[in-house]
Nucleic acid binder design. Structure first.
Lengths: 151, 151
DNA sequence: CTCGATGCAAATGCTTTGCAGAAAA
DNA sequence: TTTTCTGCAAAGCATTTGCATCGAG
């Protein structure tokens, strides 16, 4: 369910607590469930994905709370918001160190993360050549994965 | 207003006519205005941008018609739909030959188009290495342009 | 005359917000 | 007790759709 270790989860929860304390925000049962589900689940979750996982632990949690909690996680830098070709926003754990891009199967919607230093270097140069100071980027490759092509 | 020559516009209009004929679609005043405005205007237009330009020529044209006509232009391959970081969909003329990506200034929203064969080649390899057959991609660089940094 | 196209308004889908009651601090 | 949170339902937005009417062929 998660490629994140137990100690990494503790670390993320500590970062969140520290942020909430700094901002005078309260620790509630709902925020604990939402952030726990998010930290423990791999992949690129939509609000609906999150909500159904959260409701397994507490069936009364509402949409708005999930939206508000995810927004909080984005603000404190623990989650990244992504818009792929569909209409919904998806969230992934933010890895402070290395950033990655995505390879998406148009058929089965599988998402593979990648990182390519050479491409990063080239886009940095390219921006520079146009007089831009690069702040961020979005690089998404859409195609058909092996499994989907062979069936 | 446009970097597209008069003969190029004629060519685009012919392609559209051919497509409509093939599909048994009708040539209407509204479709002529919308496509004409689109072909003659450079840049990355939202539906609202289009609508206000179109209404200068015919004030009674409705939102839905612009949406429907732009959808038609996308279907026949003459327009490309783009989602940058804002909430609205933008359209640009599709250049059948070479495809390009975008460099966007976060401050002034200026959009510069670029093309980089080396990056294209690398992403092709990358997809292959993951067992994907590449269909399309999206590559957007966000930063600060020269003018915005110097003021 | 016949369908496809239009314009309006209503419907949609995702996301945000206002508010009264619930629960942290 | 005070102030923030929650859940609900309502509001917002961009986009799509249903439908009566219009107009191209």
């Amino acid at each position: 369910m998660s490629g994140v270790t137990e100690s990494k989860i503790g670390e993320l929860q500590d970062q969140l607590s520290a942020y909430m304390e700094r901002k005078g925000l309260r620790s509630t049962a709902q925020r604990r469930v939402v952030s726990d589900v998010f930290f423990r689940t791999d992949g690129h979750l939509s609000i609906d994905d999150m909500l159904s996982l959260v409701r397994k632990q507490d069936p009364k949690v509402g949409y708005a709370t999930v939206y508000r909690t995810m927004k909080l996680l984005v603000e404190c830098g623990l989650a990244n918001e992504r818009q792929f070709d569909d209409t919904v926003t998806r969230f992934e754990i933010a890895h402070e160190d290395s950033h990655h891009d995505h390879l998406i199967c148009l058929e089965c919607k599988r998402i593979v993360e990648f990182e390519d230093d050479e491409i990063e270097r080239l886009q940095e140069h390219l921006a520079e050549r146009h007089g831009f100071k690069l702040v961020s980027h979005k690089h998404e490759l859409y195609g058909m994965c092996e499994d989907c092509r062979s069936t």
